[in-house]
């Protein structure tokens, strides 16, 4: 087996700091450290989920890969070639390969564009087809996402949330992309529709060999869909592992707290909830050392001073915690 296989997408030490402007003349008064050194890879046909609570920088990672804004530091490589430092003109052909599906199906479609034009836009942009060939491709894409072909000439407001998300998926597939970034793509949908869209995504992945970067806070969906999971906390990845390993034997205390919050559909099961104290600290002024030390049940002096690196902790897990073995029963308050 080829051990030095080039991943489809490689992200190295990605940082995005948003300047905070204040004062009379809009001076920079500080930075929001939205993403602060994130590294991961995605192979062809693989799903990597990025999970974490609101404001941890999940979506910023997605948008930074799409270069919807310039990144502060780090590298983004597509098939081993850097794309983060390309000029807008050089980047354009690369855009064909990485597409996006956003969270809100209502604002991610132009209300004045017909479905056909929405789906045809990327094809036309990259000059992939025209005339009747274009119509054929749009029709095929509509079949792929299981929308009726006669929906082509309608406007987005005539569709439900789930149908609109199918239109968005068709648009993302249109240029023959290799990687689709699903930025909370199913979070706004209700449960039954969510399941349909998730199944559609995994069918399309099998059929087309797509890689997915699945940004979500819904662990149940992630467990169902993904190959690997990256857990983010305050702009950093705290744990990166295979799905089965992560859900069965999480290493990082934050991952454990997160997993313990997932509801179990069985009223007889007594769950051991790990209740974290306090709120997420502000990304404008993140804590020193380990960013999780303000809320961690196992905090010790080293955590406050030294930032833990993402390292191998056995069983294919990578975790950013100073502890090699985290005790099983957490030192939780018995408030619950």
């Amino acid at each position: 087996m080829n051990t030095k296989k080039t991943p489809l997408l490689e992200v190295n030490g990605l940082k995005k700091h948003f300047p905070l402007k204040g004062g009379m003349f809009g001076q920079k008064t500080g930075y929001v450290y939205a993403v602060d050194g994130v590294s991961f890879t995605i192979d062809k046909g693989e799903t990597l989920s990025v999970v974490g609570e609101s404001g941890c920088g999940k979506s910023t990672v997605g948008k930074a890969i799409l270069r919807l804004f310039p990144i502060t530091d780090g590298e983004v490589l597509l098939d081993g070639a850097r794309i983060d430092n390309l000029s807008a003109a050089d980047l354009r052909p690369m855009r064909r390969r990485v597409q996006v599906v956003f969270q809100d199906p209502f604002s991610s479609l132009n209300p004045r564009q017909r479905v056909r034009d929405v789906i045809a836009e990327p094809i036309v942009n990259f000059g992939l087809a025209s005339g009747s060939e274009l119509d054929d491709r749009v029709a095929q894409l509509m079949d792929k996402v299981r929308l009726p072909r006669d929906a082509m000439h309608r406007f987005p407001h005539e569709f439900s949330g789930g149908q609109r998300q199918r239109i968005c998926i068709a648009r993302a597939l249109a240029p023959g992309s290799d990687l689709i970034i699903c930025d909370e793509a199913v979070s706004a949908l209700d449960v039954s529709v969510k399941a349909q869209i998730v199944n559609l995504l995994s069918d399309l992945q099998d059929e087309l060999g797509l890689a997915l970067l699945f940004i979500s806070h819904d662990l149940a969906i992630v467990e169902h869909l993904t190959h690997r999971v990256a857990v983010m906390y305050l702009g950093k990845i705290v744990e990166l592992a295979d799905r089965s390993t992560l859900f069965a034997t999480p290493h990082h205390p934050y991952t454990r707290a997160l997993l313990s919050a997932v509801p179990v559909p069985d009223p007889t099961v007594k769950r051991q909830r790990i209740i974290l104290k306090g709120d997420v600290p502000s990304p404008i002024n993140p804590p020193s050392g380990c960013r999780f030390h303000t809320r961690c049940p196992y905090v010790h002096d080293r955590c406050r001073n030294e930032e833990p690196q993402l390292r191998d902790v056995g069983m294919g897990r990578k975790s950013a915690c100073h502890l090699d073995v985290v005790p099983e029963v957490p030192a939780m308050s018995s408030a619950a």
């Binding site: 990485v98 969270q103 991610s108 209300p111």
Partner: peptide, 25 residues
């Protein structure tokens, strides 16, 4: 708006974004 961001991500050039996505709205 996400649809403008999606258009940028799918390689739409700025003039087309202005005339197709911004001005009609």
């Amino acid at each position: 708006q996400p649809y403008v961001e999606a258009a940028i991500a799918s390689g739409t050039r700025v003039p087309k974004i202005i005339f197709k996505h911004i001005l009609p709205n």
